[in-house]
Amino acid sequence: MADSPGLGEQTLNKAVEIGLSSQLDEVENLDVNIKTDALKLVHGQVDAVTIEGEGLVMQKDLRMEELEIQMTSVAINPMSVAFGKIELTKPTKANAQVVLTEADINRAFNSEYVRCLGWATPTQLQSQKIHVNGQLTTIQPQHVDFRLPGDGKVALNATIKLVETGENQQVAFSAVPQISANGKTVSLENVEYGESEEISPELTKALIDQTSEILNLSNFDLEGISLQVNQLKVEVGKLTLQAEADVEQIPSA
């Protein structure tokens, strides 16, 4: 078949692009490429579906620099094509890649959504009471600086306000990100403080838990598509997650 998509493919490509865009707060670029032909469509067969996106912002102000999802041998309901949709007749597997930049992760840490709403759960920071220098105190994060310096590590430098005294404390450490056993989250291991001291194990744990919360891959699931990480690559300035996607439905208009 020719490289340029046929009319049926173009219609489906646009329908999926619209369906995906409706789930996102911002989209810089989104490209859907469906490979099939008219005869295969009649029999409910699609050779491949590729979804590539750049600058995709999910709810909660979580941004992906890049998203790529690749599916092969997709079985669909041929009747759904008449309505410009792709209705899967059975779930399928896909390969996915998510790239997060240093700036993306900092944006999530310091976003108004996370400050006002997201910090409220027990694993998060806002207004938690924890022990700092032996005293039980309420903490408020002022700013979190997240860095990807290379060498397979992440680094955090956080300014935390101690409400009762009004003083600010600096917390700085590096750690090695590891994929959790269930493949849904990234945890931080082998914490090192360098020249600074640990002022509170509880505060360190709260920051580590918050990082895991932001890097929870469920945050990046789309409707009908859930991701499970099987490989993590840490480079200077960016974090690349290789994942397997369980696809129950492909979003479409």
Score class of each variant (00 low, 15 high):
Y113F: 15
E198L: 04
L188V: 06
A158I: 01
E66L: 02
K60D: 14
Q170K: 15
C116H: 12
V154K: 06
A75F: 03
L136I: 04
K129I: 08
N110R: 09
I76D: 01
S127P: 09
A158P: 15
P201A: 05
S174Q: 15
E87Y: 03
V191A: 00
G183A: 03
P78Q: 03
P141C: 06
Y113T: 11
S80V: 07
L125T: 13
L162G: 08
N190F: 00
L162K: 15
S174P: 12
T137C: 02
L100N: 04
F173T: 11
K85A: 11
H131Y: 04
D145F: 04
A120I: 13
L188M: 05
L62R: 15
S187H: 01
M71A: 14
P177G: 06
E195I: 12
M71C: 15
K90I: 12
A172M: 02
V81Q: 07
Q169R: 13
P78D: 01
V154N: 14
A155P: 11
K129N: 08
L117P: 08
F146H: 12
K161C: 07
H143E: 13
E198V: 06
K93L: 09
T101V: 03
F173G: 13
L207V: 05
I179Q: 01
T121K: 06
L136G: 05
K205P: 10
T101Q: 02
N77W: 01
W119E: 14
S180G: 08
S200H: 01
S111N: 11
H143Y: 13
K184S: 11
V81C: 03
E192D: 12
S174T: 14
I199Q: 08
A175H: 05
T101L: 00
T89I: 07
F109W: 01
E197K: 15
I199T: 13
T138G: 05
M71F: 10
E66P: 03
G134M: 00
H143S: 13
E197D: 10
N133A: 06
Q97D: 01
E87C: 01
E202D: 12
Q178K: 12
Q170M: 08
R107N: 13
T101H: 03
D104N: 07
Q135M: 02
G150L: 04
E102C: 07
F173K: 09
S80D: 08
Q142C: 10
E112D: 15
E102N: 11
R115Q: 11
H131P: 04
Y193N: 12
L203V: 08
V132Y: 00
L162E: 15
A94S: 14
V163F: 01
E87H: 05
V132F: 00
A94V: 13
I199L: 12
I199K: 13
N133T: 07
I130K: 00
L136C: 02
T204R: 08
R63P: 11
M64W: 01
L117S: 11
T123M: 02
I139W: 02
